[in-house]
Amino acid sequence: TTIEWNGTKITVDNPQKAKELAKKIAKKLGLTVKVHGNTITIE
């Protein structure tokens, strides 16, 4: 699972952990999480 935001890509083996990490990042930055299959985008 890949997390993408602002040109940065982070690959996380565990999809559940990836989703939790994305939510934490999005919350800190005041952004939203969008899931597209194996890609999680923070916008």
Rank of each mutant, 00 (worst) to 15 (best):
G37S: 03
K9T: 11
L29S: 05
L21E: 01
V35W: 09
T32D: 04
N14K: 03
G7S: 07
L29Q: 04
G30D: 02
I3V: 09
K24R: 14
K23H: 12
Q16D: 10
D13L: 14
V33H: 01
L31E: 01
L31D: 01
K9G: 02
V35T: 05
I40E: 00
Q16I: 12
E4C: 14
T41H: 09
K24Q: 10
N14T: 11
K28V: 11
T32M: 09
Q16R: 14
I42Q: 00
G37F: 04
A18V: 03
T2I: 13
K17Y: 12
T39R: 11
T1V: 14
L21R: 02
T39V: 13
I10A: 01
T8C: 15
V33S: 02
G37D: 05
T8K: 14
K28W: 15
H36E: 12
K27M: 12
T8W: 15
N38K: 06
I10G: 01
K19C: 15
K27G: 07
A18H: 01
W5V: 08
K19Q: 10
I42W: 03
A18N: 00
T39N: 06
K28T: 08
L31Y: 07
K24N: 06
I25K: 01
D13R: 14
V12L: 13
K34Y: 11
I10E: 00
I25W: 10
K9R: 13
T2E: 07
G7P: 04
I40P: 00
E4R: 10
G37A: 05
K17Q: 10
H36N: 13
T32E: 06
T41I: 13
V35M: 10
K28M: 12
T1Q: 07
V35K: 04
I40T: 01
A18D: 00
T1E: 05
T2V: 13
T39A: 06
D13N: 13
I3S: 05
G7I: 10
P15G: 05
V35Y: 12
E4K: 09
I25Q: 00
A26N: 03
L21S: 00
I25F: 07
T11A: 05
T2W: 09
I3T: 06
I40Q: 00
L31K: 04
T11H: 12
I42F: 13
P15F: 15
T39K: 09
K17D: 06
I40C: 02
T1M: 14
T32I: 12
G7K: 06
A18P: 01
L31N: 02
P15N: 07
K23C: 15
D13F: 14
A22E: 00
V35Q: 07
A18T: 02
G37E: 06
E4F: 13
K9C: 14
L21F: 10
G7R: 05
N6S: 08
N6R: 10
K17E: 08
L29V: 03
V12N: 01
T11S: 08
V35A: 04
T11D: 03
N6W: 15
K27Y: 08
V12C: 15
E4V: 13
G37V: 03
